Computed example of a mutant assay.
Amino acid sequence: MIIGYARISDKSQEIGTQVEQLEKYGCQKIVQEVITGVSEDKKLNQLVEELEEGSTLVATRVDRLGRSALQVLQLAKRLKEKKIHLVVLDLGIDTRTLAGELVLTVMASISEWERKNNKEKQLRGIELAKKKGKHLGRKREWTKSGLEEALKEYLKGEKSVNQISDIYTIPRSTLYHYIKESGIKK
């Protein structure tokens, strides 16, 4: 049996292209999930346990199987022990051949390096933006004057933090932060 595995890390990503590639390859069943690659609690692990000898597991890219070379190679070892084949479409990897096993090993390492390299570049970019005084994250929907009014309202003690948060469109966590920072005690 040919089983496809498609994974995205969060719902902001699109899984459809992976599913389309797996269908085109001829997968009879496709398991889909939304979970980070580093997570150990994936449907993939359950799928591997259920696969029978002679089956083929197909993924579109190496990084869909795991985020570290170790994770991918451990998965490949488990599959080999169960006599299950692994195919990775974007690289033409097929573990039925020695060359396929070699390429999988090399590409798993490169995939992990690429992830770490991208993370490092991202962190450098964030640090540079902070040094330049740029605001990172979501744009604030509240104003300083609104926050001051919210704090006055809190001091009155007539409304809950939830109510004040809703009235002034200030997140509760932000309101609590400023209450604590202001040294306000009730």
Rank of each mutant, 00 (worst) to 15 (best):
M1L: 10
M1N: 13
I3M: 12
Y5N: 04
A6M: 06
R7T: 04
I8R: 10
S9T: 03
S9L: 05
D10A: 10
K11P: 03
S12D: 08
I15S: 10
Q18K: 03
E20F: 09
E23L: 11
E23I: 04
K24L: 11
Q28F: 12
K29F: 05
V31Q: 01
I35R: 12
I35N: 12
T36L: 10
T36N: 12
G37W: 02
G37N: 04
G37R: 07
G37L: 09
S39C: 07
S39P: 00
E40N: 12
K42L: 13
N45W: 12
N45A: 13
L47R: 04
V48S: 08
E49D: 14
E50S: 11
L51D: 03
E53F: 06
E53S: 12
E53V: 06
S55K: 05
L57C: 05
V58S: 02
V58L: 05
A59C: 10
T60I: 03
R61C: 02
L65M: 05
Q71N: 04
Q71E: 09
Q74I: 03
K77L: 13
K77F: 11
K80S: 11
E81C: 07
I84M: 04
I84S: 01
L89Y: 01
G92E: 08
T95N: 08
T95S: 06
T97G: 01
G100R: 08
E101Y: 11
V103R: 14
T105W: 12
T105C: 14
E112C: 06
W113R: 14
E114K: 13
N117R: 15
N118K: 14
K121N: 13
L123I: 15
G125S: 09
L128V: 13
A129F: 04
K132Y: 05
K139D: 03
W142Q: 00
W142F: 02
W142P: 00
S145F: 08
G146H: 01
L147D: 00
E148Q: 13
A150S: 01
L151A: 07
E153H: 10
E153Q: 08
L155R: 14
K156Y: 06
S160F: 02
S160Y: 01
V161P: 01
D166Q: 10
Y168L: 05
R172I: 10
L175Q: 00
L175G: 02
Y178N: 03
Y178L: 02
K180L: 03
K180T: 10
S182L: 10
S182N: 11
G183W: 08
G183M: 07
I184K: 09
